[in-house]
């Protein structure tokens, strides 16, 4: 749902799984993924952020203090179909690794594409959280994902 439009972007209402909503600024500007870096975060079993590396802070545009304790869906971009994340959580619940291409939303409204892997952190047989590591995707995979996600919205 678009509420407002101007040259510097538009305000969009993002609706999360479970019904919560958030107003977010969306700017049609891509920030390129930094070469050679891995963007790393960890969450608790419910998806609240417990750890981020410096590359995560730099790319997301949020401070570390804003990120720790936040729900990981703070990065959810409205162009990402809900079904992609439903697949992520279903895969994690089976105790296995999830891979996917994700368009992420920065605090300033711009976006960045990542190739993400998420795994459960298992200690003494218990899932104590999740780790996600992102790397640089190819342009062709980004194009394919854009086309696919358009059909899933």
């Amino acid at each position: 749902m678009e509420d407002q439009n101007n040259d510097d972007g538009r305000i969009v209402t993002i609706t999360y799984y479970g019904g919560a909503t958030r107003e977010a600024l969306i700017v049609d500007h891509e920030v390129p993924y930094p070469d050679g870096k891995l963007i790393v975060s960890r969450t608790d079993p419910k998806g609240f952020i417990t750890h981020v590396n410096q590359a995560f802070v730099d790319m997301s545009g949020y401070s570390r203090e804003e990120l720790i304790g936040a729900n990981h869906n703070i990065l959810r971009h409205p162009d990402m179909p809900a079904v992609a994340f439903a697949g992520l959580w279903e895969t994690l619940e089976t105790g296995t690794k999830w891979h996917g291409y994700v368009k992420n939303l920065r605090k300033d409204g711009a976006f960045y594409w990542v190739k993400a892997t998420v795994i459960p952190n298992i200690r003494d047989g218990e899932v104590v959280g999740y780790t996600s590591v992102r790397r640089k995707p190819s342009r062709s995979k980004i194009r394919e994902s854009e086309e696919l996600y358009e059909t899933l919205k």
């Binding site: 690794k97 892997t117 998420v118 795994i119 952190n121 200690r123 780790t131 590591v133």
Partner: peptide, 11 residues
């Protein structure tokens, strides 16, 4: 150690 291993697992 576990953190490093989890990270490597994703790679």
């Amino acid at each position: 150690t576990e953190f490093m291993i989890d990270l490597i697992d994703t790679l």
